[in-house]
């Protein structure tokens, strides 16, 4: 990080989901990109307005699943064949139908673990400190308020102009977010 911005950004508070969707749309049209919204529950259409990009978690899950699938199958194949040949009721050493349930279970297990680890790795949780919590009213984001935060790292960010813009969206309040 070359320069730490003095301000994390500016935050506007709205009291209903309709307003935050409209505000986000306006902000995007205005050219702001480095922004995020904080709401008490998933608001329909908000992710689209933010142009929320797809994450790579599905890819990580797929890789985890494939590792579990092939690992599980070849583990059994190797154990029952080359490593410790065991005659079970005259069945062939490569008893692939019998290997499928374990293969399936390991696929699910590895995919689930990959999903958990991948999610935590990509979203940076657990995160003990985040600047948005410096705004006292932000606690309401898990109650009934909806917040739009335009971050100072945005190239179009200008403390005065951005504040004017946010005020024009008729929020309940606009507050500075210190970093």
């Amino acid at each position: 990080m070359s320069r730490r911005p003095r301000y994390y950004g500016l935050m506007a508070e709205f009291d209903n989901p309709t307003a935050i969707v409209a505000a986000t749309r306006r902000a995007y049209a205005e050219g702001y990109r480095q922004m995020d919204t904080y709401t008490p529950f998933p608001v329909e259409g908000l992710a689209e307005e933010l142009r929320f990009h797809h994450t790579r978690v599905p890819l990580i899950v797929l890789i985890g699943g494939l590792i579990g699938c092939f690992g599980g199958f070849f583990l059994q194949l190797w154990l029952a064949g080359p490593y410790w040949p065991l005659n079970i009721g005259g069945r062939p050493l490569n008893s692939w139908p019998a290997f499928i349930p374990v293969t399936f279970e390991l696929t699910v297990l590895c995919a689930a673990i990959a999903a958990l680890i991948g999610m935590l790795a990509l979203n940076g949780l657990p995160k003990p400190y985040h600047p948005v919590f410096n705004v006292p009213r932000f606690a309401l984001a898990s109650q009934d308020r909806f917040f739009l935060c335009i971050e100072a790292s945005d190239p179009r960010f200008d403390r005065a102009r951005t504040r004017d813009f946010l005020e024009s969206l008729s929020p309940r309040e606009v507050s500075d977010v210190e970093s």
């Binding site: 139908p97 499928i100 349930p101």
Partner: peptide
């Protein structure tokens, strides 16, 4: 399909 195969194949 797989359940049928597994049961019958394993029972033999």
């Amino acid at each position: 399909s797989f359940s049928q195969l597994l049961i019958i194949w394993a029972g033999d």
